Lab assay of single mutants.
Amino acid sequence: MPSETPQAEVGPTGCPHRSGPHSAKGSLEKGSPEDKEAKEPLWIRPDAPSRCTWQLGRPASESPHHHTAPAKSPKILPDILKKIGDTPMVRINKIGKKFGLKCELLAKCEFFNAGGSVKDRISLRMIEDAERDGTLKPGDTIIEPTSGNTGIGLALAAAVRGYRCIIVMPEKMSSEKVDVLRALGAEIVRTPTNARFDSPESHVGVAWRLKNEIPNSHILDQYRNASNPLAHYDTTADEILQQCDGKLDMLVASVGTGGTITGIARKLKEKCPGCRIIGVDPEGSILAEPEELNQTEQTTYEVEGIGYDFIPTVLDRTVVDKWFKSNDEEAFTFARMLIAQEGLLCGGSAGSTVAVAVKAAQELQEGQRCVVILPDSVRNYMTKFLSDRWMLQKGFLKEEDLTEKKPWWWHLRVQELGLSAPLTVLPTITCGHTIEILREKGFDQAPVVDEAGVILGMVTLGNMLSSLLAGKVQPSDQVGKVIYKQFKQIRLTDTLGRLSHILEMDHFALVV
């Protein structure tokens, strides 16, 4: 994948999101292997301009796509893939009243899908469409860049269908997702969380590099694949309309690839034109409109599966009536509230959605109805927002919020430890010299600072030695090549209790 991002070429006709291997024109390309080798690009942008032909009021008969309808489940399912879809609609009884809503608040519980998330729908649909058009064949390999849930859905379907599955996901995604993927037989590649989507090191860039190296491999490409919004247009939206008897006044959905909100909203605009569509985008993402909503100094966020630093091709923002931004604290607070007060075992993005819903639905009156999409299960986040310690460490809970008995030293300040200034190293000294210094002084790690004293990161003896043994660096290389740029900081005025929580999850903390 090139470091400079080429513009994806656009073909003359058809839909841009065809499933299957992508040609340089962004659509299915038939021909000899030699032709494909000559024409197939190194990668295709996940934010390529959409060429979708959908228009409100256009006859369904003019759609270029294969459409399906929700099917009634048999008493005995032939395999677990038949437990994807037909998820329950559940009334939220307490939270709406707590925040003064007059309307009825309903939750579409997508964590009841077989793999635990709304992404099971698009995973199965992308595979079925690729099999139907002859792209996927027995023994082929599926590769997908994902925040985890699409990966789980694909790995689940691949396990049943017999495909090899490789999932490329950023490091910030939970260990629970990784464990589930491994249990399903998927191979996992992790990428830096802070890598831009168009960087060769991003999950998108690495996935395309693997595709170019592995024979008979395919990126189904949830960011561009029409099967993504079509899955929701054909099934999720129809289920909502049936469950609500066609009567709903507002739908609120958090947005990642945009397939969920695009597919549902398009069908609702056709069948229930008075329904307002509300999009939820986390602070630090750029999906919301108008652009002024996205202006923030924050560039990272903890909530998973929603928000991006690019506009995915499948996201149709014209069908969203209003956007709201959400933050991590309210997302996790509301997710825990949904679990504790409503018994809905949902993930953090569901918290984002409901946090926005109780604001947006203030305009609705008694007798009206708001539906929220709860995308995934708490299963993926047992060591994250479900953990009091994690919430404390991230600053989303305060010590006084917890009532468990603490040891005698818990409320003492870090400054009472009488710490001395640490050994520091410059980023320009060599790895070999740094190892000598650390061994001589008896230290395992040291902060790396520039000549102005600005902290650049941390270097550890173990990481340097393993990097040297693996051949990633040489003793003569500058130590700046092996620094940890993500590390926890703590102030002298913070409590030892807070430091204790940090050290339970990290090997060190830097006192500043």
Results as ranks from 00 to 15, higher is better:
residue 255 V to N: 07
residue 19 S to H: 08
residue 267 K to Q: 13
residue 181 L to S: 03
residue 6 P to G: 09
residue 219 I to Y: 05
residue 166 I to V: 15
residue 104 E to L: 05
residue 98 K to D: 10
residue 11 G to Q: 01
residue 191 T to S: 02
residue 8 A to F: 08
residue 208 W to Y: 14
residue 254 S to F: 03
residue 34 E to Q: 12
residue 135 T to F: 10
residue 173 M to S: 09
residue 111 F to S: 00
residue 260 T to A: 08
residue 150 T to G: 00
residue 41 P to Q: 10
residue 23 S to N: 03
residue 110 E to W: 00
residue 181 L to H: 03
residue 16 P to W: 04
residue 67 H to V: 11
residue 173 M to W: 00
residue 138 P to A: 02
residue 82 K to A: 10
residue 206 V to Y: 05
residue 55 Q to T: 10
residue 244 C to S: 01
residue 151 G to K: 01
residue 138 P to T: 15
residue 214 I to G: 04
residue 24 A to K: 10
residue 41 P to E: 09
residue 90 V to I: 01
residue 77 L to A: 08
residue 99 F to C: 11
residue 211 K to I: 10
residue 50 S to F: 05
residue 176 E to T: 01
residue 235 T to E: 12
residue 247 K to F: 01
residue 89 M to I: 10
residue 97 K to P: 07
residue 252 V to A: 13
residue 197 F to M: 09
residue 263 G to I: 00
residue 15 C to E: 14
residue 143 I to C: 01
residue 74 P to V: 14
residue 108 K to L: 01
residue 82 K to C: 07
residue 96 G to M: 08
residue 56 L to N: 09
residue 97 K to G: 12
residue 113 N to D: 04
residue 81 L to E: 10
residue 119 K to R: 05
residue 252 V to G: 07
residue 3 S to R: 14
residue 166 I to S: 08
residue 98 K to F: 07
residue 220 L to R: 01
residue 31 G to S: 14
residue 255 V to H: 02
residue 160 V to E: 09
residue 85 G to S: 07
residue 272 C to T: 10
residue 162 G to C: 03
residue 66 H to S: 10
residue 86 D to G: 13
residue 149 N to I: 00
residue 270 E to F: 09
residue 47 D to M: 04
residue 81 L to G: 15
residue 158 A to M: 02
residue 41 P to K: 10
residue 188 I to P: 04
residue 79 D to M: 06
residue 112 F to K: 06
residue 25 K to Q: 15
residue 220 L to F: 03
residue 22 H to L: 09
residue 112 F to D: 05
residue 225 N to S: 07
residue 96 G to S: 10
residue 119 K to E: 05
residue 174 S to I: 00
residue 186 A to M: 04
residue 46 P to S: 06
residue 140 D to L: 02
residue 98 K to G: 14
residue 168 V to H: 03
residue 42 L to M: 10
residue 186 A to I: 03
residue 192 P to Q: 07
residue 74 P to W: 04
residue 237 A to K: 04
residue 43 W to N: 07
residue 146 T to A: 04
residue 56 L to K: 11
residue 101 L to F: 04
residue 254 S to M: 04
residue 28 L to Q: 10
residue 146 T to I: 04
residue 276 R to P: 10
